[in-house]
């Protein structure tokens, strides 16, 4: 599905990623851990094509296609979705208009007719129930005045609306209490199919109890320095990262 080779990237002229290699196959869940500032969000942003980040070397292929040649929109149509570490507030743009634009742009890119108003509203209603998000949130401006937990839940709601095949969860669990964490994680699990793969960025074992990773990678100073199975999360939670650096 996703193949990253020798990826180097800069932001504001500073090199953050210093040669990342990562392969994620269909249906696999990969967790990414690492200290603050290691470059985890940078890697996510580069994968989804944030223009603030400049790729200086390396390649990303997605289902055999050169992802670096695609716009962020095109990557989205390929099935890539990122749950933002900091979801953006967009005052004055209603969730409904935002979702309609997103859903219909995607349908158009895939050669499908836009949804009729009634079909769209039904999709919103059904999805709302599926991820257990408050109706009121959906009628407000995008993320405006949402609490931290509501924003994360809204990310999962959008994911459910767009049905991606590759999801990046960038610290979607941070700042959530145990109950909210469970809702978000279960929401994600409900959306998964056998083909869905994901890159899950987290600092905590507890999320990985719900979303069982096939592999755990440790990113330190712009490089993946260790890859192991699910058991690594527990060890990192107990011992931190210092022992890996040596």
């Amino acid at each position: 599905m996703l193949e990253i080779k020798n990826l180097h990237a800069k932001v504001d002229g500073k090199e953050i990623l210093k040669g990342v290699d990562l392969t994620i196959r269909d249906g696999e869940i990969h967790a990414l851990m690492g200290t603050n500032g290691a470059g985890k969000s940078t890697l996510s942003n580069v994968i989804v094509g944030n223009p603030k980040y400049e790729v200086t070397e390396g390649s990303i292929t997605f289902n055999g296609k050169d992802m670096l040649a695609m716009t962020p929109e095109e990557r989205s149509y390929e099935g890539v979705f990122m749950s933002f570490q900091l979801p953006v507030e967009i005052p004055g743009v209603s969730m409904t208009n935002f979702m309609r634009a997103a859903v219909n742009a995607r349908r158009e890119a895939l050669g499908q007719e836009p949804l009729k108003a009634t079909e769209f509203l039904k999709l919103i209603r059904d999805t709302q129930k599926l991820v257990d998000i408050d109706k009121k949130l959906v009628s407000r401006s995008v993320n405006e005045g949402f609490s931290g937990g509501e924003k994360k839940r809204n990310e999962i709601f959008q994911m459910a609306m767009l049905q991606p095949t590759f999801c990046i969860l960038d610290e979607t669990d941070s700042g959530l209490d145990v109950d909210a964490l469970r809702v978000v994680a279960e929401g994600f699990n409900r959306l998964r199919t056998a083909q869905t793969s994901a890159l899950v960025i987290t600092h905590y074992q507890r999320l990985l109890d719900y979303i069982r990773p096939d592999f755990i990678h440790v990113l330190l100073d712009g490089k993946i320095v260790k890859t192991a199975g699910a058991e690594l999360a527990k060890e990192i939670e107990d011992r931190g990262f210092d022992w890996i650096k040596e």
Partner: peptide, 20 residues
């Protein structure tokens, strides 16, 4: 960028922001 990640084309994203 948030809107583009969701698939909303840049021109439309700009439009939504101006309209808002």
């Amino acid at each position: 960028f948030y809107m583009r990640q969701r698939g909303i084309p840049l021109a439309e994203a700009r439009m939504l922001l101006m309209q808002a």
